[in-house]
Amino acid sequence: FEAKTSGSDDLKAIISAISTLVEEATFVATAEGITFRGMDPSHVALIDISWPNSAFEKYECDSDIKFGVRIDEFSKLIKRADKKDSIEISISEQNMLLVTVGKNKKYKMRLIESSATDTPLPKIPYDSKITLSSSRFDKILGDVQVVSDYLTIHTSDSKADFSGKGDSGEVVIDLEKDIDEIGEISSKEDSIGTYSLEYLNPVVKAVGTTAGQITCEFSSAKPLRIEFKVANIGRIHFYLAPRVES
């Protein structure tokens, strides 16, 4: 197995996103590319990544392999790459990950026992969909966070608003007012869902600079799915369980 990126931004974004949820990550490499799926320890959030072979400058994988890494250790190595540096990874017979950063930095990192299970994700329908730029979404999260720990998303017909409510006050951000930055709002059913900023903020910050557009899909009191559209990466899906009135 050998994979070489062109530039380091995509891998940095992926590792940064994964690091918001887990300390140890298991990747699966097949002839088609590299995938990762993992949940935080309390099973509130899940990241599902599919990175196709076509996105790499060079990619070879003769047989399927799983490899586990400590994400903070891997992250430290990846951060040594400049923006334009390629990163090449392969696995040695001694069960070490060989990471070549740029032209001349050759790291070896110990792999860990992979504990991942392949739980398939069910296909669930979503009633509402909002597409907007990731930088706009990041700002909205910041706007809500000053009064609340939770983001409430509400759609009605083809309108949507984001809101938050806390002990000190509340905020409503009407998306119609800045339609220029909103790509699309659609809803089959009026939907309202509340999601924790503790999980949303870090992943949006992690992938935000690399992703142009994001798509939020949800149904009332059901999980939120965010798709980050990153040019070279096939798919980054982030799932977040809702907060519901008890």
């Binding site: 309390s42 959030a45 907060r243 519901v244 008890s246």
Partner: peptide, 13 residues
């Protein structure tokens, strides 16, 4: 206050 749910109950139960 709203209570945090987990993904298991929506996806795998």
């Amino acid at each position: 206050k709203p209570k945090q749910t987990g993904l298991d109950e929506f996806f795998w139960n």
